[in-house]
Design a protein around this nucleic acid. Structure first.
Lengths: 332, 332
DNA sequence: GATTTACGGTAAATGGTTTTACTAAGGAGG
DNA sequence: CCTCCTTAGTAAAACCATTTACCGTAAATC
């Protein structure tokens, strides 16, 4: 049978209040009683019941973390950063992966709310998440991470600067003389993709190059997804000389497929990938990537959640800048 | 202000018990009252407080997941499997990464216990975890995953068959004529490493080859860690003709370093890696890996936790077999 | 017609803690 | 000696739900 504060109090011949004060140091208790109580606590290896404590204190020191595409490598690193920062701040994390399912996301937020988490860090499945406003407008702290959404009010966000990401990658390829740049992506209708496409378009426009919608290719975020995407893209658009690929797994598929088709990288088709994964350096040719800092995004988002919890008016949209890591696949 | 069952009851002119019965379907309530109550619940968007519920019911539908080396790719896939299975079973997961810190692991188990999780899935930092027995002997459900430990009683485990992993990889290299096989690993004093070394030794013994302790090299589980490990290993042992590397990041470092030293793979040194990561196929030469199924290990471990929760006597040690994925780096 | 049984509903206890408001006792100051 | 603080300790309320035990009433059974 589980031992409670009441049991300790009884054995020590004091009130539960006194035991509570000893446990939490909320009031000075005479040396003698303090020792007596502590001895009994240790004797029984008493561990206070946080659930009861949470109920009373209306706080759980737990945050919800809702991600949409675990275990994508970017998301994984981000989760790592969030978990680490949470741990440093004495918080625990309730992790849920929605697998890009919007309805399940909504259910999950409900569930986490009912579990009385102190706040939620959410990487939404889509832009269509106005259900969140019911929470945020009531002052429940929610911060958007990685992906943002224009429809939700009163929720700070921490993301990469995806416009700049699309812009920088595209501009770099344009500088190499490319005019027909394929854009391969994995998730439609989310800010990450949309903003990168905006950046892509803007870079083209600034170079007086036309935007061709057919150069955009959606695929699954897997190796095969990448292979299939590049196959159908190349079948449709013969003049492509460069590819900007938004996902590391897809990139592997793309490379396989290009080799299979005896298309040389970067001579025939230049490549820029997204996200710095370890083997980029040892692939032939070494891959040029544009990267955003997932761990920093994660850590920052937790800090923002803390700010939001402590100050309901807190409202910032933080965008972290990308870095282009130039190697050989872009033709440099 | 948060709305409670009491508020609903008041507005509906019924007792809280009745509201509870409507919410949980625990008793039949007349159509008319049922509707009246449900309408009010919807009107206020009432969400029951799980903390109060948990306190009363002594169960939280939440499990603790304590991993030691997130975001290692194997562990990440495993976490994915666990999370997915938990979700399917209506459970939530409290995720904590101990970063190979044994003391923090102990603290964490305490914390999770106090949070009244229904059980814990733990990937321990070391073999030295007898503190766990205080929990398991009291019937608190703990299952060990990925790594097991001989000192903890009454805790089922789900791991890969690491003995076989070490044995199969080594045997394969021996068949290619290799006699001096380096073994590069990242974590000392854990079952995964120890069992693989046992398998390595057994394979050597069966081939009447001597075991040389100096062929074992410990390094950090990073790209640089791999590069450093292979450098110091080769400086010490000139005759090495094959390497078995336990970690994908280290493998990348090893390949970089070997190329830097103009050592050809597999002609000069053959390679077997652990774990199937996507780019294995596009690296030159394609990497031969021995793999264990992290997602299945994860899913299974959650099922085992369910079994343990429902039956305190449940006690199984499940080991999943490895598969050798032969490509070119081993010289095949 | 007497006795069960079923049904709908509720009061109150319960879960384990925190926290407020109060008491009693001892000490200081005048 | 009286008053005023301070201090150590405690009783009880609060947190928000679930669940047991019970109470009428009406229907069913013999």
């Amino acid at each position: 049978m589980k031992i409670t504060m009441k049991d300790i109090a009884k054995e020590a011949n004091v009130s539960v209040a006194t035991v509570s004060h000893v446990v939490n140091g909320t009031k000075h208790i005479t040396e003698e009683k303090h020792k007596r109580i502590m001895d009994i606590i240790r004797k029984y290896n008493y561990i206070p019941n946080s659930t009861a404590k949470n109920l009373r204190k209306k706080t759980t020191m737990t945050a919800g973390l809702v991600v949409s595409s675990f275990p994508d490598s970017f998301v994984t690193e981000m989760v790592y950063g969030i978990e680490e920062r949470a741990r440093e701040m004495g918080y625990n994390l309730l992790l849920v992966n929605t697998n890009e399912n919007r309805d399940y996301e909504e259910e999950t937020v409900n569930l986490l709310y009912s579990k009385m988490v102190d706040g939620i860090i959410l990487s939404p499945t889509s832009n269509d998440i106005d259900y969140l406003n019911a929470y945020t407008e009531n002052g429940f702290p929610i911060v958007l991470v990685n992906r943002s959404s224009p429809v939700v009010k009163n929720a700070p966000s921490v993301t990469g600067d995806n416009f700049q990401t699309g812009y920088d990658a595209t501009t770099h390829l344009i500088k190499h003389g490319h005019k027909n740049i394929g854009f391969i992506y994995a998730v439609p209708d989310v800010s990450t993709t949309n903003h990168r496409i905006d950046g892509y378009k803007t870079a083209l426009a600034q170079a007086n190059l036309p935007f061709n919608e057919d150069l955009l290719e959606l695929g699954f975020a897997t190796v095969n997804g990448g292979a299939n995407a590049v196959r159908s893209l190349l079948a449709r658009e013969k003049d492509i000389t460069a590819l900007f690929i938004q996902n590391d797994l897809m990139l592997v598929g793309v490379i396989s497929k290009l080799r299979e088709l005896s298309i040389k990288i970067p001579e025939d088709i230049a490549l820029i990938g997204f996200g710095d994964f370890a083997s980029s350096t040892i692939i032939d040719p070494p891959i040029t990537n544009i990267v955003l800092p997932p761990e920093t995004i994660g850590r920052t988002s937790f800090d923002v959640l803390m700010s939001k919890i402590n100050n309901p008016d807190y409202s910032k949209h933080i965008e972290l800048p990308p870095t282009l890591i130039v190697r050989k696949s872009c033709g440099c």
